[in-house]
């Protein structure tokens, strides 16, 4: 074991890691935001729509869940522009991919949540004369969101970690920054130790934030 840890070169390039971390967070927030919209819309269509809509949504969910994210990233960034003859930048391409990926996982969370809203609450909404749309907006969705908070926390932290896959198409996020420092300084242990610490601290901070939300909003039954 003749390896001496030396972090000097890492600190010299720390701005690369810091800007990478910020970009990772931005990628995660954007993709989760778009994913939530996709997930909510498709979950509502799933629980209230016909057979064909259900089958299409189920196919989308299964496709995404059974294909590795890295493959989807390649497919969207290299594949689609080749076939349709246009180009987009790597960051846009990755946000699109991760959003669609997040959407598939979130449809499942929201769909299960909508199914789990107690029937009695829907009856109570009917009994005071709410229309189906009002029941959805004022009873089912708010109840469902509070019930699914614990599952959402896990999904959000996973999606934050998944932003590291963007490094394979040279999006300058945290993992890409780490690779750059590694190639240019060869301090492999140091850089990955620091980056591991950054992912750990950020992921844990996200989890703590969401736990606080859970405590505030989760439904004690």
């Amino acid at each position: 074991m003749g390896y001496d840890l030396n972090f000097t070169l890492i600190w010299r390039h720390f701005d690369k890691l810091w800007s990478g971390l910020i970009l990772s967070l931005e990628l995660a927030i954007l993709s989760i935001g778009i994913g939530i919209v996709i997930g909510l819309i498709l979950a509502v269509i799933y629980v209230s729509g016909g057979r064909i809509a259900r089958a299409l949504i189920a196919a989308y969910v299964e496709l995404i869940r059974n294909v590795p994210l890295i493959l989807l990233v390649y497919l969207v960034f290299y594949g689609i522009p080749t076939v349709f003859d246009f180009a987009y930048d790597n960051t846009t391409s990755f946000v699109m991919t991760l959003s669609v990926y997040a959407g598939a996982y979130l449809v499942e969370v929201f769909r299960a949540g909508l199914d789990a809203v107690p029937k009695g609450l829907i009856d109570a909404g009917k009994a005071i004369g709410l229309t189906p749309w009002q029941r959805l907006v004022h009873v089912r969705l708010p109840t469902m969101l509070r019930m699914t908070l614990p599952a959402l926390s896990n999904t959000f932290v996973s999606l934050f970690k998944d932003t590291s896959v963007a490094s394979v198409i040279a999006v300058p996020e945290l993992t890409y920054g780490a690779q750059w420092i590694n190639f240019n300084t060869f301090r492999i242990m140091e850089v990955y130790l620091v980056v591991t610490g950054l992912y750990l601290v950020t992921g844990y901070a996200i989890l703590l934030g969401l736990r606080a939300l859970e405590r505030r909003y989760s439904i004690g039954r």
């Binding site: 009994a127 004369g129 709410l130 009002q134 509070r146 439904i219």
Partner: peptide, 30 residues
């Protein structure tokens, strides 16, 4: 149906209060 149901009040065995709303909000929603 919604319009007609508004004319009949119902109280349930398991209360069925909206869990995310306060006592007052449960009443003001309708």
């Amino acid at each position: 149906l919604a319009r007609m149901r508004a004319e009949t009040g119902m109280v349930f065995q398991l209360f069925n209060l909206f869990p995310h709303l306060t006592a007052a909000q449960n009443i003001t929603l309708g």
